[in-house]
Amino acid sequence: MESVIDRACAAALYVEGDAALDTGASLLAAAPEADAEAHRRGEEFVRRAWDRGWHPADLVRHVRHELDERRAALAATLIAAETARYAELPPRWRRQLAELPAPVPRNRPDRFRYAGDLLELYRLLLRLPAIEPVGPPPGAAADHLHRPPAADEPRMLTRIRALLAKAEATGFPEEAEALTTKAQELMARHSVDEALLAARTRSRETPGACRIGVEPPYESAQAVLLDAVASANRCRAVWNDDLRFTTVVGFEPDLDAVELLFTSLLVQGTAAMTRAEAGQRAGGRKRTKTFRQAFLMGYAQRLGRRLADGAERATAEADAAADGGDGGTGGGLLPVLAARDVAVTDTAERMFPRTTTTRLRGVSDLDGWTHGTEAADRARVGGGGGSRRGPDGEIMA
């Protein structure tokens, strides 16, 4: 049985073209007794992907982009089977596994086509590049899988998720603004509390990292928005446009905040863009891809300024409260936050020693830009104003 699989892989995986895939698929389709071993071979390819730094969500996203949704679901099926062998998984892995596509039935729609899908997927997995590892791999020692959560952390994250879910669901911009503002305030307060607790207990916790998908269309605008959210939450973001993700470096509570807020703001921005397009069409003006690109870029740029302002205010208020709480001696919070900022920067620079700063251009629809900045005002997360910035952005890649 193994010789059939070896011959099929040799025929299909190392030679370009559909003819090679057809040859390998014919060999597998004619050998039903080799099915189980063929899938174990696929799980081995998945296991090698973990060794190269990939995570489940990264892998499915890459397969979807390079091949299609059908092969992405097949990859998810192999991922689920491979990760079932581990007694313990990192929390972020568990969340990603819960969001995988549903498993694919074997040999559908027929043995030949299914075998061809397997081999084309294996060909892609075989050629995966190595990427920077983020977080512990599956099977790591249990004490490395997660830090002990703060006493109120689960309840705090539940409240933040609930606020953002309401902000996404409401049709009233003012209500969405109030809900999102409250969520950001809770995030900032939680981050400061974690920093002070770590300082008091002399915690040895170090910055970690996570990857967040940044996929077409309008990926440059998404990357700008994600960079702004990361900066406001004391993280650093590095965009890999070739592989369609951004790596965010920071302490774990701040990484959680970035994931939650970015996802919510993207949902809110997309909904606002849809409403703006409907208004433009009602006025007799046809909107295009350039309108949508300009809208989201304006939305991201304006939110970036507002997020930065909100972060500065939250830090100042927390520092003032800390000064009042220690008899006016002061000086306790800002050095703690500065030390964490240095640790995050050092970690990001070790992980990515050769990043470049890219200026993004190409916004050519003034209506889209204006509507996007207005939508950012309605979704602002820290209150207060911010100066307008032109339709150029800089981002680390």
Rank of each mutant, 00 (worst) to 15 (best):
S3K: 14
I5H: 12
C9L: 11
L13G: 09
A20M: 04
A20F: 04
A20G: 06
G24Q: 04
G24C: 04
S26H: 10
S26C: 04
P32D: 06
A36T: 10
A38Y: 00
R41C: 08
G42E: 01
V46Y: 09
V46N: 03
R47T: 12
R52F: 11
L59V: 01
V60S: 13
V60Q: 13
H62A: 07
H62E: 12
A75Q: 09
A75H: 07
A76G: 15
T77A: 06
A81Q: 12
E82N: 05
A84Y: 08
R85T: 09
R92Y: 03
R92S: 08
W93F: 12
R94K: 14
R95W: 07
L97I: 11
A98W: 12
A98C: 13
P105K: 10
R108M: 08
F112D: 05
Y114T: 02
G116A: 15
D117P: 06
L118I: 08
L119M: 04
L121V: 11
Y122I: 00
R123V: 05
R123G: 03
R127M: 04
L128M: 04
L128I: 02
P133T: 12
V134N: 09
G135F: 03
G135V: 02
G135S: 09
G139A: 08
D143V: 10
D143W: 14
H146Q: 13
P149D: 07
P149S: 07
P149N: 07
A151D: 10
R159L: 05
R159S: 06
I160G: 01
K166C: 02
T170W: 12
F172D: 15
E174D: 12
A176S: 15
T180C: 05
A183D: 03
Q184D: 10
S191A: 15
D193Y: 02
A195F: 04
L197P: 01
L197N: 07
R200N: 12
R204Y: 00
E205Y: 06
T206G: 08
T206V: 12
G208I: 02
I212L: 15
I212E: 09
G213V: 01
E215N: 08
P216K: 14
A221V: 05
A232G: 14
N240C: 01
N240L: 00
T246P: 00
T247C: 06
F251R: 07
L255E: 08
E259H: 12
V267I: 03
V267G: 03
T270H: 13
M273P: 00
T274M: 11
A276V: 03
A276N: 09
E277N: 11
R281V: 01
A282M: 09
K286F: 02
K289M: 00
F291W: 05
Q293A: 11
G298N: 12
L303S: 15
G304A: 09
A314V: 06
A316D: 10
A316L: 13
A322I: 01
G331A: 03
G332K: 01
L337W: 11
A339Q: 14
A339F: 05
R340P: 01
R340F: 03
A343D: 14
A343Q: 13
A348W: 04
E349R: 14
R350L: 10
R350P: 03
F352L: 01
R361A: 11
D367L: 14
G368T: 02
W369C: 00
G372W: 02
T373S: 08
A379G: 11
G382M: 06
R389Y: 06
P391I: 00
G393H: 01
G393I: 00
E394K: 14
